[in-house]
Amino acid sequence: MNADIAVQEKLLEVDGLSATFRSNSVRALRDVSFRIDAGEVVALVGESGSGKSTTGLAIMGLLERGEASLSGSIRLVRKSGERAELVGLAENRMRSVRGNDVAMIFQEPMSSLDPIYSVGDQIAEAIAAHQDLPRARVEDEALRLLTIMAIPDPAKCFVSYPHQLSGGMRQRVMIAMALSCRPRLLVADEPTTALDVTIQAQIIDQLGILQRDAGMAVLFVTHDLGLAADLADRVLVMYAGQIVEAGPADQVFSRPTMPYTAGLMRSRPRIGAGRAAGGQIQPIPGGVPDLARLPTGCTFHPRCAHAVTGRCDVTLPALEPADGGRAVRCLRWREITP
């Protein structure tokens, strides 16, 4: 680890975060800990239902008290330099964090915007929520943001209603909105999953440029390991509500230590690695466990090829430090090469 990284400024620190949905007793997050430094891109990967969106919503304080019970700690260094504990923070203070210190963009651009207001009004609303500017300045700023997002005709987009825009345009608008108050952290929850590939690439490129220009940190939630490897400095692998492997993206993707990470990588389609090359797609057998009734021991053991009875189904592994600055949650990581 070089000195440059060592002095990096801590931005977000999640510690022992657990979340249980009240309606169905689903334990969506269990003892989740990670940190994000200022300006850093961290990818959060994992199968559907592993708790990625719940993590993002918890950071935004968007899990309502009646909806889920939350424990643990989420500490954020705010723009003011104040360190705020977000778990249990009073609603009126949390409101000044949302959209201001942390912003979020969501998976479904088609339903992210209010159908009855124009795009310009909705961006202006986000600006006015945290900045005390005259209306004309707010509108100028909204137009500027649309221009930054490489929207072809910003003035026209400004007066458009959501249904008049394509999915890609709507997601650009969402990003413009999210960036409107220059947050230090952006939670991007699968921002391009619902879009077609060319649009996806454009938006990811733009997001990357904006991220570097603004020195903004991004928690990038994605299914796409390729995208995670391209974009992220570090990666967090999540399984059934726990972080099972974490570390620098190049380390984790070149030599996965936890069998689940390795399984995810084998189950992903790759161009140029067809059958002839011996790179077959091998899906992980079985499915994600019922989060209301979790398996004993290592949560992954029913699906793990390396599981040992009497051990993996009994002892819950802790997230241990391993080689290359990473952490891994597996009882046997020293013994196996997954």
């Binding site: 409101r95 339903s111 609303e125 929520a129 909105m177």
Partner: peptide, 21 residues
């Protein structure tokens, strides 16, 4: 609906979310 969550994510108050959106 998602746009309500988005409205809240902007930092609007409960009352603004409810009455405006």
């Amino acid at each position: 609906r998602l746009f309500v969550r988005v409205a809240k994510a902007k930092g609007l108050s409960e009352r603004q979310v409810s009455f405006r959106h």
